[in-house]
Amino acid sequence: MKSSDTSSAEPSNDETDNSQIYASQSEGSESGRFDMSSIVEVPRWQRILKAIDLPVQFLRIGLLVLIIWAWESRWIFKGWSPFGFELFPEIIPLFQGVPSEAWDFILDIWDDSTFWADFWVTLQEALLGFVIGSGLGFIVGLLLGSFKKVAKVLSPFLIFTNAVPKIALAPILILWYGVDIASKVALATIIVFFIVQIPVQAAVSGVDPDLDVVATSMGATQFQKFRYVVIPGILGPLFGALRLSSIYSILAVVLGEFIVSKRGLGQRLLYETNNFGMGKAIALITILAGLALVFNAIIGMMERRFLRWQDTEARGKVVSL
């Protein structure tokens, strides 16, 4: 594993990892044999320190301070027009929002019950859209991947439906499902469905056919083959799709709320922007990003739990070098 790949390097630094061992050089060489007792496990605090990687943290914090400073001082709103080409337009003060305003707003809304009502609406829409869309996408992907005849019949329909820019359906969905949460859930469901269905269907074909032969020769039923061969075999691509879906479900519901809605963070964001409450808008955008990150982190935790064997596969390779 390369140290630059921090996201995949982190799981290998948990406490069950015993691959990071080293031998103290001074011992064990006299007999001409490697002395296994000279293997010392790296102390826990050293491993934690290595996982934290202080220089990287310092650089990150430095960069963050720099960004906030450039923003708070309104330097970024000055505009920049190299060679007379207006690459970054100058922003008039009315349209400017700075982090301190956003921060004040966040402190305010903390005990504002209408904010939490909006938050809950958006969270509900996104969760429902995510669960229904990825659930259906998983089932349909699994079935189409397994039953090639059905997939053949349906493929032109699915290709066309997928080619539709889904957000173009939003106004229609609002007419059909109303201005409340159902229309936003529907939009998120449709977007998430394809994000999951397509890779799952492809992954089913990618499962090692030998494993299927082994299971068949042992007399496995179709259901047992799903359970013991297909589903474990597609978990990798499935989790990749779920991570993406978690972010797109939020995107979909915010967009739906922009169009028409009574409640929700997207609706609130549009309102604040239209009334030049730029600090508030920035705060709301940050909250939405935070929500997406939490979704993503929960899925990441499940992924590490279910794909532990892939982690060890990577470790096994490193050790055998």
Partner: peptide, 14 residues
């Protein structure tokens, strides 16, 4: 009947 294929065909996740 026990059938062992030419490739070991073990489940990598088990």
């Amino acid at each position: 009947v026990g059938y062992m294929l030419a490739r070991s065909a073990l489940s990598p996740w088990r």
